[in-house]
Design a protein around this nucleic acid. Structure first.
Length: 268
DNA sequence: AGAGCTACCTGAAGGC
DNA sequence: TGCCTTCAGGTAGCTC
């Protein structure tokens, strides 16, 4: 279920027990998540030092001392726990770090994956669009990326090549804040629309990261579980509840197979 | 080429 | 109680 803010929070929670430490032992409880781990996964990770842990879009990236990069994606249901008290169903990967901590990856639906990439090798990150919080995302950049597109703005914002890291929740929330209907043609946004949208995308993402950090308190709850925290959403999951601005009932429609929540009165 | 559909997988919730 | 359907915050790969 994680989008960019959740992945950022997980990365910040894992860094203190992983960054600068060696993978003393790697345990795989099955041969694959979404993709097979590969026969050499354990031998390429075990004994390596994790030099740096970072995030790009919804991916976490661990740079190993060998030069390999370990990409980790949480899919829909992936979560990490540090030093869990007991073994849980769907605990698929266990990293024993030289920090003395056990880092456990649990993923019910197994849409997540881990993948090792050699230096210079192509990866799934190669075609990602700009990070929402970076200066690379600006109104002119978004406008250029949307130029000539025939789809709806909701679908365009979920396209990781346009902006990297937005998911269903934060696209709904950003469109609400920008007062733009999710059914608008993406290629026809005005300059003013695009400026508003970019500003609210950045705001909603940075608000969520702040909320994650503060509500998780040192980025881990009492069970050491990372990746879930409570948000208050204006529209997401609020079908038939009143709009916080005008009290009109929040509407739910399905676009490209996913739920979209919006206020028909406020969003035009 | 681009847009949209389906697949992948498990579990929770709701209707009957 | 159980059975069935629908839904879930992800991306990849197929079809048209």
């Amino acid at each position: 279920m994680p989008e960019l803010p959740e992945v950022e929070t997980v990365k910040n929670g894992l860094a203190p027990v992983m960054e600068g430490y060696v993978f003393d032992r790697v345990q795989l409880n099955r041969a694959d998540l979404r993709f097979p781990f590969g026969d050499d996964f354990i031998s390429r990770v075990q004994g390596q030092k994790l030099e740096r842990l970072s995030r790009r879009a919804k991916f976490m990236m661990a740079e190993l001392s060998s030069g390999d990069r370990l990409f980790m994606h949480l899919g829909m249901s992936g979560k990490f726990t540090i030093d869990p008290a007991a073994f849980e169903k769907h605990d698929h990967v266990i990293f024993e770090m030289s920090s003395g901590n056990r880092v456990v990856y649990n993923d019910t639906r197994r849409f997540g994956f881990m993948e090792l990439i050699k230096p210079g090798e192509p990866s799934r990150l190669d075609h990602l669009g700009p990070e929402p919080l970076s200066n690379e995302l600006s109104a002119p950049v978004l406008r250029a990326a949307l130029k000539g597109k025939k789809n709806k703005i909701k679908a365009a914002l979920l396209d990781q090549r346009i902006i990297a890291g937005l998911g269903n929740i934060y696209v709904c929330e950003a469109l609400y804040r920008a007062k733009l209907s999710p059914t608008r043609a993406s290629g026809k946004l005005t300059v003013a629309d695009t400026e508003l949208l970019v500003r609210h995308i950045k705001d909603v993402i940075s608000d969520a990261i702040k909320a994650g950090g503060s509500s998780l308190k040192d980025f881990a709850n009492t069970d050491g579980e990372l990746g879930y925290f409570q948000h208050s959403f204006d529209v997401y999951g609020r079908e038939n509840e009143p709009c916080n601005i005008c009290e009109t009932s929040i509407h739910r429609i399905v676009q490209t197979g996913r739920s979209t929540f919006y206020c028909k009165a406020c969003q035009r």
